[in-house]
């Protein structure tokens, strides 16, 4: 351990984490596999202490985006800075400041929970900095993620949710300045989910920059300081849950029939539109329905259209709705 302390540098040498500068800065990020363009120019930034949720249907490019930021995947084009460095070329010192929770992990099944967490924690010790002791103490961390009772359990005997909580613990054992969480709550029961939300807020309070992906709008609304909706390889909408909801509900959907034909029109001012409609057609208008769409409606229709196959149409229709 003594050896380790001598090697540590002043935190100022790394920068990035403090001040208004973004911990994650991405502009014009593109990713292309053969003919298909998964990311078509994504811009995003995450500041220290901020929780940004990347929301989108499956296959929208969330995982690809996160893996590029984690340095696990080479991008086709665009500027990417994580903690001031390009993930494609960053070193192990940079790696030590990152926390990563990937989508799918079945590794180390024969290890015991505490055995693996302690083993991986050990790698962070040489990277401790004044004011940022590394790694976190393993027993406390197990307590935090609710796995104290399972410390001696073999990992392949854990439930899906317990396994996921261990993944989260491993992701934060190095006291990261930036934390990437890809679908972290898969398999969580409601209580574990609530515990996880508290944990994320706690980490943000420690000034950690957090980028989290989910396809669950409810989770995004609970966690995010800012939501980025990813669709068609671009950020289709961005803002706090309230801002996004406000923008969606600016439009109302009006449905009616006239002469046996169905009509649908969306309008920011339903009252004025109806006044005009009645003025023009009067008694011909029947089966009238006026509905203010919420963020949830807009998002669900995005996902449905997306899954029906038209990624780009879905994205542009959604952008239309949430203008």
């Amino acid at each position: 351990m003594a050896l380790v302390e001598e090697d540590t540098h002043a935190p100022a040498a790394h920068g990035g984490a403090d001040g208004p500068g973004a911990a994650v800065e991405v502009s014009g990020l593109r990713m292309r596999y053969g003919d298909s363009e998964v990311l078509a120019g994504v811009d995003l930034h995450v500041r220290s202490g901020e929780v940004v949720v990347l929301l989108g249907p499956n296959g929208a490019g969330k995982t690809t985006t996160v893996e590029i930021l984690e340095g696990f995947r080479a991008r086709s084009a665009g500027d990417v800075r994580v903690l001031g460095a390009d993930p494609a070329t960053a070193d192990e010192r940079w790696r030590a400041r990152l926390g990563v929770v990937m989508q799918s992990w079945r590794d180390h099944g024969r290890w015991r929970v505490e055995e693996l967490l302690s083993h991986l924690a050990g790698f962070y010790a040489p990277y401790a900095e004044p004011g940022r002791p590394k790694p976190r103490a393993v027993p406390e961390l197990l307590e935090t993620v609710g796995l104290s009772d399972y410390a001696r359990r073999r990992i392949n005997t854990l439930s899906g949710g317990q396994r996921r909580r261990l993944d989260v613990a491993i992701g934060i054992v190095g006291r990261p300045e930036v934390l990437f969480l890809d679908e972290p709550t898969a398999g969580f029961d409601p209580e574990a989910r609530r515990g996880f939300h508290d944990l994320v807020h706690g980490l943000a309070d420690e000034n950690t920059a957090i980028l989290l992906t989910t396809h669950d709008l409810d989770e995004a609304e609970k966690l995010a300081d800012r939501i980025l909706i990813l669709a068609g390889g671009r950020v289709a909408a961005e803002g706090s849950a309230e801002q996004l909801a406000g923008r969606v509900s600016a439009d109302a959907e009006v449905k009616w029939t006239r002469g046996g034909q169905r009509f649908v029109h969306s309008t920011p001012d339903a009252t004025a539109f109806l006044r005009g409609l009645f003025a023009d057609y009067g008694d011909e208008v029947a089966d009238l329905e006026v509905r203010r769409a919420g963020l949830e409606d807009a998002y669900i229709s995005l996902v449905n259209r997306y899954e029906a196959g038209g990624a780009h149409e879905a994205a542009s229709a959604f952008a239309e709705e949430i203008r």
Partner: peptide
């Protein structure tokens, strides 16, 4: 096996993990 189940990726996610 370690590539398939993510053991190797876990090593990559940790500083100096590949040496370990």
């Amino acid at each position: 096996t370690d590539r398939e189940d993510g053991t190797l990726l876990r090593a990559k996610a940790v500083p100096d993990g590949m040496i370990g």
